[in-house]
């Protein structure tokens, strides 16, 4: 039994990287617009479907399908911002959050219309490589690819936010909207960019999970439920926290599910979340408000 610990740890870590993608997607939107995006599950499923369609309908190779899906993500992100969020600019926050719920229902309907309610699966063996075994730990090629792609995505994001002027402006907007405007930052552009980035991350997660399992409008969006504890766990306003939260949720779920009870695995993350919230309400890495006395 104990010899299985590293195995469950590693596969949890690899799966967790996909949760982390979703969690970071939520946090990006929250940080810059203060909106909690309840449509993230549907957006990621939509991304997965785009990737699937490019592979199955247009016979693209997988990498090209992923590029195509990411381009669609850019379009989707821009449309969502322009049609749903911008008209509501300046409205009460609750209204906007409800609008994201409405968006999720709408997207689910669209997916049902286009791809029906049945499961669809990618053709198998599109990814090169086979299961890697290190010691007693086996890592499937799919999970390794997923992990690799997630790492690349995070590294790119980190570079963008730390090194580029646009990244700096986006971080500035996340701290103070009015001040950012007075500094000459075009915040509508920043909001649009935020949504594009968020949908891109969702699309990556949706494609990777869709490839590994299958896609269906009924359960693919539920993946987001794994990201919610991750986000709150790490602190709603911390990208690093969301990343770590995603990994931790993946690991806990896999370890508890594998070693104790599979049904326990599903709820374990929430139990831990409850504990974290009791001790640190701002999350593990949430920003404390700076107040000068």
């Amino acid at each position: 039994m104990l010899s299985l610990v590293p195995q469950f740890f590693v596969s949890g870590l690899l799966t967790g990287s996909v949760y982390a993608l979703i969690a970071v997607s939520i946090v990006l939107v929250y940080k810059s617009t203060r909106i909690f995006n309840f449509a993230v599950g549907e957006l990621l499923a939509l991304g997965g479907y785009f990737c699937y369609s490019f592979v199955v309908w247009f016979h693209f190779p997988l990498w090209l399908a992923l590029v195509g899906a990411l381009l669609m993500a850019v379009v989707t992100g821009l449309l969502v911002e322009r049609l749903v969020l911008r008209p509501l600019l300046g409205q009460p926050l609750l209204t906007i959050i409800m609008a994201t719920l409405a968006l999720s229902v709408l997207l689910r309907g669209i997916m049902l219309m286009i791809w029906t309610g049945y499961d669809v699966a990618f053709p198998k063996n599109l990814l090169p490589g086979k299961t890697v075994v290190v010691g007693s730990v086996a890592m499937s090629a799919e999970l390794l690819w997923a992990f690799g792609i997630a790492v690349v995505a995070f590294a790119t994001l980190a570079y963008f936010f730390v090194k580029t002027q646009t990244g700096l402006r986006m971080r500035a907007v996340s701290q103070d909207h009015e001040l950012a405007m007075s500094c000459g930052i075009n915040i509508t552009v920043v909001f649009a960019l935020t949504w594009v980035l968020a949908v891109i991350l969702g699309t990556l997660a949706g494609s990777l999970m869709g490839y590994r399992l299958a896609l269906a409008p009924s359960y693919t969006p539920l993946l987001a439920l794994k990201a919610f504890p991750a986000v709150i766990f790490g602190g709603l306003d911390s990208v690093t926290g969301a990343l770590l939260g995603g990994l931790i949720v993946g690991i806990i779920e896999s370890m508890v599910g594998g070693l104790i009870d599979p049904t326990m695995g599903e709820i374990s993350a929430y139990i831990l979340l409850l504990a974290v919230l009791l001790i640190r309400p701002e999350g593990l890495m949430g920003l404390k408000r700076i107040e000068r006395v």
């Binding site: 971080r171 500035a172 001040l179 007075s182 700076i290």
Partner: peptide
Amino acid sequence: LEGRRVFPHF
């Protein structure tokens, strides 16, 4: 802006 508005975390 009034009140020394800085980006506090920068």
